[in-house]
Design a protein around this nucleic acid. Sequence first.
DNA 1: CGCCCCATTGAGACGGCTCAACTTGCGTGG
DNA 2: CCACGCAAGTTGAGCCGTCTCAATGGGGCG
Lengths: 251, 251
Amino acid sequence: MASTIASSNRPSQACTHGFIKASCSHCNLKGLCLPIAMDIDDIERVDHLIQRGRPLHAGDHLYKAGEPFRSIYAVRSGSIKTYMIDEDGIEQVTGFYLPGEVLGFDGIGTHKHGCNVVALETSSVCEIPFERLEDLAAQIPSLQHHVFQLMSKQIESDHQMMLTLSKKNAESRIATLLLSLSRRFARRNLSARAMRLPMSRMDMGNFLGITIETVSRTLSRLQKDEIISVDGREIVIKDPERLDALCHQLQ
Amino acid sequence: MASTIASSNRPSQACTHGFIKASCSHCNLKGLCLPIAMDIDDIERVDHLIQRGRPLHAGDHLYKAGEPFRSIYAVRSGSIKTYMIDEDGIEQVTGFYLPGEVLGFDGIGTHKHGCNVVALETSSVCEIPFERLEDLAAQIPSLQHHVFQLMSKQIESDHQMMLTLSKKNAESRIATLLLSLSRRFARRNLSARAMRLPMSRMDMGNFLGITIETVSRTLSRLQKDEIISVDGREIVIKDPERLDALCHQLQ
DNA sequence: CGCCCCATTGAGACGGCTCAACTTGCGTGG
DNA sequence: CCACGCAAGTTGAGCCGTCTCAATGGGGCG
């Protein structure tokens, strides 16, 4: 399944030395990612500042909290988890990022990355040096606006997450996550019904503020009720309407 | 106490027709607010795009979710609450804003405000038209960077809130909120120990993901343990160290 | 093959919710 | 002036959802 994701994003040409050679204009994520709604010349200019690195393997860290902030990153293939560790060592998963999604907007304020970023499976990212992005954004109004938009959407989705954590019960949290993943897969023309979860039960539970036991029990219950079917990380949404209805219940 | 806050931010000159006349360069919040770290000429240019309106009274909405997004706002005096209402009518308070703090960064992505904004007491705000801010940001690199920084800090504090909602028990959530308010009062050279909460128990509970009964019980317990004293909305932090220690406990 | 990690399932404990009663402060109107 | 209603807050009793602790079951890998 990981290979399915990767192949759906693989650029047309591959490079001899094993690195993935790509360009924004040929990337089939350009309708989702940073270059959205930019004209071809401007995409070229963004393209030149993007650095495409060696693929990350599952468990590899892209960066860790406290390291100097220099770049933001767009996911090209695979999947990425961000998490923070507070002063007491408590971990909080703050997000999951799929191809075409941009991460790393925290850390601009403090010049240090605010969270840790780790690959959940073999993944590749585009690195976007932020100082150069700022220079270019000052020259291309639509790019500046687009960066503001991406950050704004991050804030909105974080607020939605605060509501989920604050007001919803375990079943509703799980349903909300499954539907979010489903919609994001669908946006990339993958199946909205059948998917392989990129994260462990531990990561799901940590993100949703519940224990792995509750995650497991809830998934089992949803399966018993024939709303989804579960086989490890393979999930099939059998009844999207009822799953959606579950999102709308309180704790 | 509301008047204390207002007077501490009142600009030097007052206008005849009752509106508060002000400028960024004379505002004693300029070390906290949008013009931070800008030189005097650039502050003047920011100053010209800022619109200062009639004061809001407690309960007045600055804007509501769904209205077209045009401006962000800096709090000049008083205090402001933001909250979202999801499709089921569930309300979630997403933040409290004190003088010198900037709000409204959600909504850039969708061109519609993502949340509702209401004054908790008599308050005044500076309106910053966003299109003109974008124009100016493209000309003043430090301003563009500063807007990115403000949004980045919003994201970081939202992530911190996600951790609080996801991992901490009621006592720890209350302690975290009290210390956050205390630090933000102190930054404006107000007392870090004695303060008047700008929000109701309902708002505190909604923000923190607990019921008003639990808020009330928890405050009573902290008072019994002589960590704080409570008299309605008047709070005195009697033992900051122990209050801080309470932040660091799990659920 | 055995080890370890991840996931599942069960039983009991507990923190916070629900429901309810009561208090207090404040504005309104008789 | 007091009576009254109303909103906000406090406190208590019992309930419920999730956590904790524990046992068991696969699946991948050395």
